[in-house]
Amino acid sequence: MTDTSIYTQTGVDTGEAGFGDYFALLKPRVMSLVVFTALVGLLVAPVPVHPMVGFASILFIAVGGGASGALNMWWDADIDALMRRTKSRPVPSGKVEAREALGVGMALAGFSVVMLGLASNIVAAGLLAFTIFFYAVVYTIWLKRLTPQNIVIGGAAGAFPPMIGWAVATGGVSVEAVLMFMVIFMWTPPHFWALALFMKSDYSDAGVPMLNVTHGRKVTRNHILAYTVLLAPIAIGTAFTSIGGPVYLVTAVALNLWFLKGAVQIWRRNDAAADADDYKVEKAFFRFSLLYLFLHFGALLADAALRSSGSGIF
Rank of each mutant, 00 (worst) to 15 (best):
D78G: 05
N72C: 01
L25R: 00
L290M: 04
A17F: 08
A272P: 05
S174L: 13
G245D: 10
L59K: 00
V173D: 08
V213A: 06
L42D: 11
T10V: 12
V175G: 02
A239Y: 12
I184M: 02
D278I: 09
T86K: 07
G103Q: 11
H50D: 14
G69I: 08
K200Q: 12
A177P: 01
A38R: 01
A274N: 00
A232P: 07
A252N: 11
N121Q: 02
T8A: 10
G18P: 03
D13H: 09
P162I: 09
R221Y: 11
Y22K: 06
F36K: 01
G171H: 04
G65S: 04
M186L: 08
M106A: 15
M1C: 04
L293M: 08
G41D: 15
T228W: 13
G54D: 08
L293S: 02
P162E: 08
I224T: 02
S308W: 13
V96W: 07
L230C: 00
F285W: 06
K280W: 14
P90W: 05
N150V: 06
A232L: 08
R287Y: 15
F55W: 08
D21T: 01
Q149W: 15
L179C: 00
P51C: 09
F314C: 03
A239N: 13
G126V: 01
F288W: 11
G207Y: 06
A177G: 07
T140G: 00
A263T: 04
V178E: 12
P90C: 09
D3I: 07
K218M: 12
A226G: 11
A98Y: 14
Q265K: 06
F288G: 10
F198T: 00
R268Y: 10
F185N: 02
D76E: 15
T251W: 08
Q9K: 13
A17Y: 14
F288C: 11
A109G: 03
V137R: 07
A101D: 10
F185M: 10
G65E: 03
L102S: 12
A276Q: 15
L290P: 03
A177K: 07
T238Q: 08
L290T: 04
P162N: 03
L33I: 14
G41F: 06
F181L: 01
E282D: 09
V219Q: 13
Y135R: 00
V138W: 12
T4Y: 15
P189N: 09
P48Y: 11
V35G: 10
F19H: 02
K27D: 03
S68R: 06
A304Q: 07
T238K: 03
I79E: 12
T228P: 03
V247F: 12
L116A: 09
M186S: 11
G103S: 15
S311W: 14
F294W: 08
L146A: 10
V264R: 13
